[in-house]
Design a protein around this nucleic acid. Structure first.
Lengths: 214, 214
DNA sequence: CACTTTGGTTACCGCAAGTAACATGCTGGC
DNA sequence: GCCAGCATGTTACTTGCGGTAACCAAAGTG
């Protein structure tokens, strides 16, 4: 039967694809984002052209690889965002979810965000930019949507929510990146500090004695 | 005289270096960050090994190139940060300075921040990551310093200022990047929205009717 | 048995980073 | 005036990557 056969083939192709992605994952996590297609193919026990048959080009592989992690991360953020609690708590748990994720698997994080620095040698880099930014964008849009649909921002709420979504995500990202690199404090402290910032503590704080004020 | 000669040579070397950087600048701005060393050398009217003698490797050239722009940007931010006005105004004018800079020369901006996507073809990319992030870090540290020295944050002010510095810079960066790509509103609107966010409007806003609250 | 399809390989191209070895011209000391 | 030395520049190479073409074999189907 022809359709049955098609299905089998399809399933098998998908299976192979998943195997390849897992191999790629292992290599990228081991060698950093500078991992070469050759290395990935070798890890998967095959040779380059097969990879290209499956993913088109390196960007394709990267995209497929990134999407798995991205989806997982977004899911956990969504969960935190949708928890039944007040706004401050939700914000904190979302920040915490993000930071926990990048703390738990820094290699994955670095791969997703800064694809091109990890490799020990030639730094040919992955396709970068074109894919790392989309993750931030996706998170920003996602957050914007949640904000817009839950917070009353008056007229112009669409634009405002968007700006805030991307802004908050950027804040989280940059602070997280810095924190991950220098481990200057506990995760909880970081979460609290960021939430305080979003809660207007910068505006509320007084000027330091002796200066013209910030 | 020997020292005199040294000086002459030194001056001449510095001059050459500047010429090379200017040529590199032109090429990068024209061809995007994927510009090859060959192309840069050609633009400068010389050949590759000379570039390598001056800058070591591609990363070195990148670093030198980036520093010029970075320094200029930081100077303008510092000016805004130090203007005699109240805190809110300073924050707004700093945001505005940053956004104005990236709006005025998006090519430079993309080169500094996302070095590896602009090239029209092969996307070999510049050295990326290792250099683009430092700019954000520098801005974050700089801001942290200003905050710490001007705002009274009670005990733990060092840590808090740092977190906020990097967080605010990240917010500015991500929002700016998104805004630059989609031009969804005027610069002034964006500045206002971000300042509002920092001023705690997210915490102050009410819940939207019909939802469990954000 | 020929015959297409599917999953595989080897061997290659093009190109960019980076280097080695060679050429040339200006310096100053003898 | 002539040779040593050094900066400046060149050509020609190596290596390693992304990507592709062409070939190969096994397995089901008329």
């Amino acid at each position: 039967m022809e359709t049955r056969q098609r299905t089998d083939q399809q399933r098998s192709a998908d299976y192979r694809r998943r195997e390849l992605l897992e191999a790629a994952d292992r290599v990228v996590l081991r060698d950093g984002p500078g991992a070469s297609m050759n290395a990935i193919a070798a890890e998967a026990g095959i040779t380059k052209p097969i990879l290209y048959r499956h993913f088109g080009d390196k960007g394709g592989l990267y995209a497929a690889l990134a999407q798995r992690h991205t989806d997982a991360l977004l899911a956990s953020l969504r969960a935190a965002l949708d928890a039944p609690a007040d706004r401050r708590e939700r914000v904190e748990s979302t920040l915490d979810a993000y930071l926990a994720a990048i703390e738990a698997r820094p290699q994955v994080y670095r791969f997703l965000m800064h694809p091109a620095e990890g490799g020990s040698q030639s730094e040919q880099g992955f396709d970068t930019g074109r894919h790392s930014i989309p993750l931030l964008r996706r998170m920003g849009e996602e957050l914007a949507q949640v904000v817009e649909e839950r917070v009353d921002l008056g007229p112009d709420s669409h634009r405002l929510a968007r700006v805030w979504g991307h802004g908050i995500v950027g804040m989280m990202h940059a602070a997280g990146d810095w924190w991950l690199g220098e481990q200057p404090c506990s995760r909880a402290e970081l979460v609290r500090s960021l939430a305080d910032l979003l809660w207007g503590r910068l505006a509320a704080a007084g000027n330091r004695a002796g200066g013209p004020g910030f």
